[in-house]
């Protein structure tokens, strides 16, 4: 078989995730159960081979926790805002489809940013241009070019947060340069 070997390091996040799912489903985190889960995880990862997700190899937990909290706060705030819009503005709401060019060109980064943006109510990815890594996002309550600029900035901020968590070194350097400038 001519499939490319995946290094254990690259596969490790997937295996840890599978073991966690196993433990959570059994609601049992004893070492024996986890060990059996790990054996199953390796078996599953070997037998049902998928193209490996290209991780950058770094993951900063220190950045991830504040990002997750910030994400929750944003989701909550946006949920109430959409609630308010539904009740108060209703049929008179104005939207826009905004093109947001992203910095990163890796598929994982574009997907993650799209997910984060879609999960926050009030914005929704309509189309993705993979070659230029541009997201076309439908946003609620965008009335004028000012709002468009503001919205685009918020999307790029979300991407910056994700780059700080798990971007490659080059992306991180580019981001730092942009902030300094």
């Amino acid at each position: 078989m001519s499939r490319r070997r995946v290094s254990l390091r690259q596969e490790l996040p997937l295996l840890v995730w599978l073991v966690f799912v196993w433990g959570a489903l059994w609601q049992n985190f004893t070492p024996g159960n986890l060990l059996f889960g790990a054996v199953l995880a390796v078996l599953v990862a070997r037998m049902f081979y998928l193209p490996p997700v290209e991780l950058s190899g770094r993951f900063s937990i220190l950045q991830a926790i504040p990002f997750a909290l910030q994400f929750l706060v944003k989701v909550a705030a946006a949920s109430f805002q959409v609630f308010y819009l539904a009740v108060a503005r209703g049929p008179k709401v104005t939207n826009a489809v905004v093109a947001v060019p992203l910095r990163s060109h890796s598929d994982l980064m574009v997907t993650a940013t799209g997910h984060v943006i879609s999960l926050i109510p009030g914005s929704l990815v309509v189309e993705v241009d993979r070659s230029t890594s541009t997201l076309y996002i439908h946003a609620l309550n965008v009335r004028n070019p000012d709002d468009v600029v503001k919205f685009r900035r918020s999307v790029r901020e979300a991407e910056a947060g994700l780059i700080r968590i798990m971007g490659t070194e080059e992306e991180l350097a580019a981001l730092k340069q942009e902030v300094d400038a």
Binding site: V93, N95, A96, V97, A99, V142, R143, D147, V148
Partner: peptide
């Protein structure tokens, strides 16, 4: 008519 901007349309 509900959109203030549509940057996808041209594409």
């Amino acid at each position: 008519e509900l959109l203030s901007t549509d940057e996808l349309e041209a594409v």
